[in-house]
Amino acid sequence: MNEEKKILTRKEAIKKMGKYAAITAVGTFSILNPLKAQADSTPPDPGGNPLG
């Protein structure tokens, strides 16, 4: 996997899940992003959007 692809994957992980963790040769790190706005914990609805 080239470096550009690695960065994209990292950015996508942070955007989608709010977190990204990795082990490097010198130690470990994680990057955690809070939600951009206030929200309750309603998960995405696999049964379709209740609002149609």
Binding site: T24, G27, T28, F29, S30, I31, N33
Partner: peptide, 15 residues
């Protein structure tokens, strides 16, 4: 700039 929190161990922090 990103409002990101990052948790790192001492080895990573030193580098």
């Amino acid at each position: 700039i990103s409002n990101s929190y990052s948790v790192v161990d001492e080895g990573f922090k030193k580098t």
